[in-house]
Nucleic acid binder design. Structure first.
Lengths: 245, 245
DNA sequence: ATCGAGTATTTTGCATTCATTTTTTGTCCT
DNA sequence: AGGACAAAAAATGAATGCAAAATACTCGAT
């Protein structure tokens, strides 16, 4: 930025924030992290144009680092770049979602297989702990708590796979479907919820026995069922409107 | 570029070439494709600095689109960005390679599972065809032909999975290990080679029966064995020196 | 000759500028 | 009023400019 700014030069958001822990030496890296969060959190509606100028003002930077970040987000699949028409939030078709869920299923399936090779008893105990916690949420019909704990279980399995490359890829794909995934879980019907709990029991069982191939199968099927539930929810979202008001 | 160029403005490489079929509207996209190829093909040695200025001259562009492409390649894991020290070709540690092979194994395993759901008899026939072709290369000890056909078989399976997202991710990871993968195949010992042929028989068998879960297991194990062979080759590369001269 | 302080050169990161293209606004005509 | 066209405004894509950092180089001391 310049030294003397006439009008809107003051950054709308605090310059660095450095929220949490991540710190990037370069402006580009910093902006990439912040912009990715901004997009993943759904601050811009689906299919809408990404306002380059506005974001520059918001972050208090010039267009160069922002545009670099946009290119990366486009490569990650979060946004689309239309020639001479700027960036748009990528609208995921139903097919896109199905594909994403399947890839996630494949990655978790892999994570489970690898986890069986290296997981410690302590890690299994920790996951069991989470499982009981989640069961509590299930009994109390605490959807939010259930969702969070469920996420942590799946992340624990990925972590137990001891593969940073896998972890990164997993995080990437997870980011793309975050909003949908969340609402899909909320919309989960009673029956599917009970089914998911049973599947989780089976996951734990296979994990305890370090049955990699078996766990791989169960995880894939588990995610496949999640996919079905999510797609169903998106296809008939009128339930929401009927239940909410 | 401009109309009148004083000194070194003439692009060293042909302006667009448009080799094959890909065409990008933006300079950035064009450069991204060309630079990615340039890196993947190994034109810059491992761990070496990526010469920004030189590449700009080579492609006949300014630094802005090139730097955007560099950011994307860094996000893809092909290069590293050191703060204030530019880009370097990412040097893969043995651990990195193990992780990459495992992720590839997971993706192919997934591809096989999905392929069983949707593959047509014609596609299977085509893969059988490739298999026999590969067997021919094997009998003739034609390593290069074998390698190529092998690649095509695996790509056919990924294609049969009918999942563009998976295909893209697969291509991405494949690019990262291309050089290593190739040399690993060349270094393949006679015994491992025969083993791989048997594994391929099993793959075809499971595919014919559309046994998704089984194929998933076989593919994972097949890639795991490839990984072992590759890592062994890298750990003791003196065999090459002994055999070549 | 080797090492190291100090300077010159190059490189990097980002801001700014410029030429196009797209989008919006305004005007006129039916 | 509504639509076609043109001018104005804004945006995009890429090049250039500039300050800071890193690297290379010079030269002197040991």
């Amino acid at each position: 930025m310049k030294s003397t700014i006439p009008d809107t030069g003051v950054p709308i958001a605090p310059p660095a924030q450095n929220g949490g822990d991540r710190q990037e030496a370069s402006l580009h890296g910093e902006i990439l992290l912040r912009l990715r969060d901004y997009v993943v959190e759904g601050n811009i509606p689906d299919g809408a144009r990404v306002p380059e100028r506005r974001l520059c003002e918001m972050f208090g930077i010039s267009r160069t680092p922002l545009r670099e970040a946009l290119k990366v987000l486009a490569a990650e699949g979060l946004i689309e770049l239309l020639p001479n028409r700027g960036a748009r939030i990528r609208q995921l078709s139903q097919r896109d979602l199905e594909e994403l869920f399947d890839v996630m299923a494949g990655l978790e399936s892999l994570a489970g297989r690898l986890a069986c090779e290296a997981i410690t008893d302590e890690e299994i105990t920790a996951i069991e702990q989470l499982h009981y916690e989640m069961y509590g949420h299930y009994l109390h019909r605490d959807m939010h708590g259930y969702f969070q704990t469920n996420q942590r279980i799946h992340e624990s399995i990925v972590a137990a796979a001891r593969n940073e490359t896998l972890k990164t890829a997993y995080a990437n794909f997870a980011g793309r479907i975050r909003r949908v995934r969340y609402s899909a879980n909320f919309a989960r019907k009673r029956q599917r919820w009970a089914e998911a709990m049973r599947e989780h029991e089976a996951i734990l069982d296979a994990l305890r026995r370090r049955a990699g191939s078996e766990l791989s199968d169960i995880l894939f099927q588990h995610l496949r069922n999640k996919r079905t539930a999510a797609i169903e929810h998106l296809t008939e979202p009128q339930e929401d409107a009927a239940a909410a008001p």
